[in-house]
């Protein structure tokens, strides 16, 4: 019975003692430095704040930089896209002709002016101009006519200042129609000069 009391007492006393000791120790250390530490603390906090602020500022700068970069990239992509679209347009838009003629009408000339602008802003691009005919008529004559069409498109571009050595011509006559139909709509599509990157 007596032992039980001792154990109980110990259980109560030892934590109490421990508590007192730690309290006492704290009091001993902190008591004399009270005024000093608040100032240092404040400074540290200030420094910390400054640091945080600086980090915030850097972060913001970084974000701004990233945003600018992103904008730049978007702009570049847009330009790239525009260039691609310009190139695609250059390559996909055909110059069309009337039956049995290699003469460039107003529309053909306007289109060739756009093509000349593209060629001027892309001085490294060399182009093959392909001359084509519709299936009417006979194939040897159409081969000759296809060449005249490609050559008249080339001559027009050269007159607009494009170096002739950047432009080669080839005639496919009636051998490569884009529309197999046998009506004026299809024939009109087939009477063309097409542009292909060399």
């Amino acid at each position: 019975m007596k032992r039980k009391w001792i154990i109980l007492a110990m259980l109560l006393v030892i934590p109490a003692m421990l508590f007192t000791v730690s309290c006492a120790k704290k009091a001993v250390v902190s008591e004399p430095a009270t005024t000093d530490t608040t100032a240092a603390d404040e400074a540290a906090r200030q420094a910390e704040l400054e640091k945080q602020k600086e980090i915030e500022r850097q972060k913001q700068l970084e974000e701004e930089r990233l945003a600018a970069e992103r904008a730049e990239q978007l702009k570049a992509e847009a330009i790239e896209r525009d260039l691609m679209m310009a190139e695609n347009r250059f390559l996909s838009e055909n110059v069309y002709f009337d039956f049995d003629t290699a003469t460039l009408d107003y529309q053909a000339q306007e289109l060739l002016k756009q093509k000349a602008m593209w060629l001027q802003s892309n001085p490294d691009a060399n182009t093959v101009i392909e001359g084509h005919c519709d299936e009417r008529g006979t194939n040897a004559y159409n081969l000759a006519l296809g060449e005249r069409r490609a050559e008249s498109a080339k001559a027009f571009l050269v007159n607009l200042g494009i170096d002739g050595s950047r432009l080669t011509t080839i005639s496919y006559g009636e051998e490569k129609p884009v529309d197999m139909g046998q009506n004026e709509e299809a024939w009109a599509k087939n009477r063309r000069a097409g542009f292909v990157k060399e």
């Binding site: 040897a140 004559y141 081969l143 000759a144 006519l145 005249r148």
Partner: peptide, 9 residues
Amino acid sequence: TSSVGIDVE
């Protein structure tokens, strides 16, 4: 031949 334009066949 000597004539500007198509001469063929």
